[in-house]
Design a protein around this nucleic acid. Sequence first.
DNA 1: CCCTGAAGCGTACGAACGTACACTCTCGCG
DNA 2: CGCGAGAGTGTACGTTCGTACGCTTCAGGG
Lengths: 185, 185
Amino acid sequence: MATGHTDPQRRERIIAATLDLIAEEGIARVSHRRIATRAGVPLGSMTYHFSGIEELLREAFGRFTDHIVAVFDAYLGAAADRDEARAAVADLVHELSEGSQRDLVLTQELYTLAAREPAYRELTHEWMRRSRVHLEKHFDPDTARQLDALIEGLTLHRALAREPHGRALTLEAVARVTTTDRGSH
Amino acid sequence: MATGHTDPQRRERIIAATLDLIAEEGIARVSHRRIATRAGVPLGSMTYHFSGIEELLREAFGRFTDHIVAVFDAYLGAAADRDEARAAVADLVHELSEGSQRDLVLTQELYTLAAREPAYRELTHEWMRRSRVHLEKHFDPDTARQLDALIEGLTLHRALAREPHGRALTLEAVARVTTTDRGSH
DNA sequence: CCCTGAAGCGTACGAACGTACACTCTCGCG
DNA sequence: CGCGAGAGTGTACGTTCGTACGCTTCAGGG
């Protein structure tokens, strides 16, 4: 076609198509051609806008963490006190584990990359940092850290379990971790 | 070469090479040829022993879960009472998060597959079931479920964190989740 | 109105891929 | 000893891949 026109949306559409493809078919099936077809752009656009698949993946997961951090912000930012924060955490866990399959899959893909390549760990660090900022508004730093890990585990197990646990169990776990005084054993 | 001899170790070596390759380079870079080179077997062996990459992956991750469940058994099976169980859980979290990079990466790869394809979820179900069997020897079922999720989250966050938390924090989180009586908030 | 530089595209090439299948080799039976 | 059967292999085919690069198109200056 060669429109000769600058098209600033082109990059974004390619990135969106990349995330869709990864979510549906996995990193293993990502290729320039498949992304181009999905995005409705010519193959030549791929190398024109991105130096290679690696750069494309980094950008795509950058967009994804922006999105997922926004979800965290939406749920945790509104909480006014501890109890609201606890409820928000439970809502978040249930949203992430039974909401769009897309976010769940992309999260796992990102963790997989992060587990192997430090470059992607920057993204997960930022994500963890941002979620802790919210949690530390209501809980001390150690508790926030534990709670953050608990959110991760509950979300994953709930998403993968044959019979996902109910909201009551989520809330109980959150309450236990955020209860700072000593109980007997 | 065509030795004409049955070689029962051949399959196992291929599976081991597959796991090594996945751990080091990721699912995206798995191919018959690369596995064959790594395993020191001719290309023709690949299709002779396995109907295709899919079957190979299923078998490989089956071996991996056998291994990882054995690690769970080793840590949790020996605990004689609640406090030993708590300590074992902490040991397990720290072993998984700072032990071999290999197990960590393979775990994430498996979760990624499980998040997208139900077939792989069978493997994670069995894994979760087995770990709960151990935990339920010392804790009630709801607590075991929460603790199992906590283990997952603590392990992952510890493995990916810029500054991993110490054992004290792990133990505190475990204690909180396994403390069954009510504390004030 | 023409010219030019930037923006963007189509295509071709070499490498790597999965798979099929004709083939070689050895063991054990007769 | 000879030979059939089955285990295991080498190779060749069609496909798909990433990438390079010459080409087309058009906005804006002269």
